[in-house]
Amino acid sequence: MTDDHKYLESLIQSADIDKTIEVLADTGYDSNNTYIILENKGIKATIAPPKSAKTSYTQPRSDTINYIKEKGYHVERNKNKYGRREIVENTIYRYKSIIGAKLRSRKWDNQDVETLLGCHILNKMTNLGMPQSLKLT
Rank of each mutant, 00 (worst) to 15 (best):
T55A: 08
A53I: 12
I65G: 03
K54R: 14
L136P: 01
K71G: 00
Q59R: 04
K124G: 11
L136Q: 09
G118K: 00
V75D: 02
G72T: 03
K102I: 01
V113S: 06
E86R: 04
K135L: 13
M130T: 08
G100S: 08
T55F: 03
K102M: 08
L134A: 07
K69N: 10
V88Y: 14
A53Q: 10
P50T: 03
M130S: 01
R77L: 06
P49T: 11
I47Y: 09
T58V: 14
L103D: 02
M125T: 06
D63N: 14
G129I: 00
K107Y: 14
L128H: 09
K71E: 13
S97A: 08
K44P: 00
R94E: 06
I92C: 12
D109M: 08
I43M: 00
L103Q: 01
S56Y: 03
S62C: 07
A101V: 05
K41G: 09
Y67M: 07
K107D: 09
I65F: 02
A48H: 11
H74W: 07
N66I: 11
E86F: 06
S56P: 00
I87P: 00
I65V: 02
Q111Y: 01
S105N: 07
K96H: 05
T46V: 15
I47M: 04
N78E: 09
D112F: 12
R104G: 06
E114W: 04
E76H: 09
D112S: 07
N80K: 15
K81W: 01
M125Y: 04
T137S: 10
K71Q: 10
G83S: 14
S105M: 15
V88R: 07
S62T: 13
I68L: 08
L128G: 08
W108I: 13
D109E: 12
N78V: 01
D112Q: 05
L117N: 13
N80E: 12
T64D: 06
G83A: 07
R61W: 01
I43K: 02
T115A: 12
K51Q: 15
I99S: 06
I87W: 13
E114S: 02
S56N: 10
D112H: 10
G100M: 09
A53C: 13
W108N: 03
V75I: 11
I43W: 01
S97T: 11
R94A: 14
Y57P: 00
E86Y: 06
S133F: 12
K124E: 06
V113T: 10
Q132L: 11
D63L: 15
K96C: 04
N90F: 01
R84K: 15
T115N: 06
L103A: 02
E76T: 06
S62R: 05
I121T: 15
I99W: 06
E114I: 10
R104Y: 07
R77G: 00
R94W: 11
K135N: 15
G129Q: 02
A53P: 14
T58Q: 03
K81P: 04
A101W: 00
N78A: 04
I43P: 03
T126G: 03
V75S: 14
